[in-house]
């Protein structure tokens, strides 16, 4: 079903900026990997490189026996379908209803005429409703996507990923604009995709306690390079300070940025 994802010295430069600087990673099937790092550390760029929304300047990415960086045309679109991606801003079409937004995940299978007419088969609609039902969103199927809350929109985006029959899940800061309750729901959905379907999940996160709670493996990036690669237990305070380069911050308190309900209900006061 799924295969190992291997990044081999992948770089992406924007002008003189090295957004991703020769990153090599080997991600085994079924791993739940959290990517952390400062804003601008190259986390988003790395996910976009894997999905091929952008092309690498150098290096190669492979999934099983497939060389992702060499894909073109239909094969490239099939790869994008296989590695579903969700975004911080959900990227749904506000004016279309929820069901259509989910069915969009089936478009890679459609020819010109059926997609221009927005025509989907009953089997596809059943699949979409099942995916929505799995995320408790089936009752909202006929509502416009724009009228939903952020957390609901993100779950619709995950349902879309499910109907794509994904093989690997990429999530670009999926909970960064959600409240704690919705953030938990979205993370639980990703965990179920990982544990029940056995799929690899790669998620960019800003909240360290979320990364610790959900991820088998944490990869930290700084200035486009991988700074740390290990388990949550190996991610000590010293390492965290290195990753975020908390210059001037005497103390670095995870609870202050936490969006979790369980942990850190009473965050320590920020030193004046």
């Amino acid at each position: 079903m799924t295969a190992a994802l291997i990044l081999n010295a992948v770089s992406r430069h924007f002008g003189n900026t090295k957004a991703v600087d020769s990153v090599s990673l080997s991600i085994q099937p079924g791993q739940f990997v959290g990517v952390i790092g400062r804003s601008g550390a190259g986390k988003s760029t790395m996910l976009r490189l894997i999905n091929r929304l952008i092309d690498p300047t150098a290096g190669s990415i492979s999934f099983g026996a497939t060389d992702i960086t060499a894909l073109k045309g239909k094969a490239l679109r099939d790869w994008r379908r296989d590695c579903a991606m969700i975004f911080q801003q959900f990227n749904l079409v506000d004016r279309l209803d929820v069901l259509t937004n989910v069915l969009i995940g089936r478009l890679a299978e459609h020819g010109f005429a059926s997609s221009m007419a927005m025509r989907f088969s009953d089997a596809e609609r059943t699949m979409a409703i099942q995916a929505l039902d799995r995320l408790d969103m089936a009752p909202k199927a006929l509502q416009r996507a724009g009228t939903l809350s952020g957390g609901q929109q993100q779950r619709v985006a995950i349902a879309r990923a499910l109907v794509q029959k994904l093989r690997i899940m990429l999530a670009d800061e999926p909970i960064a604009s959600l409240d704690p309750g919705n953030a938990t729901r979205v993370m639980e959905a990703l965990r179920s995709i990982n544990s029940e379907d056995g799929l690899t999940v790669l998620v960019n996160l800003h909240t360290l306690d979320t990364a610790r709670a959900y991820c088998d493996r944490i990869v930290a990036m700084r200035f486009g390079r991988v700074m740390f690669d290990g388990t949550a237990a190996q991610l000590t305070d010293d390492v965290v300070r290195d990753i975020y380069g908390s210059d001037g911050l005497a103390e670095f308190n995870e609870a202050v940025t936490s969006t979790s309900i369980k942990a850190g209900a009473h965050p320590a006061p920020i030193p004046a």
Binding site: N51, L53, R77, D78, W79, R80, R81, D82, A84, M85, F87, Q89, F90, N91, L92, V93, D94, I104, G105, L107, A108, A157, R160, A161, Q164
Partner: peptide, 11 residues
Amino acid sequence: KPIEGFRASGG
């Protein structure tokens, strides 16, 4: 953004 959403799902 919505257009990018599609591109990422193979449209």
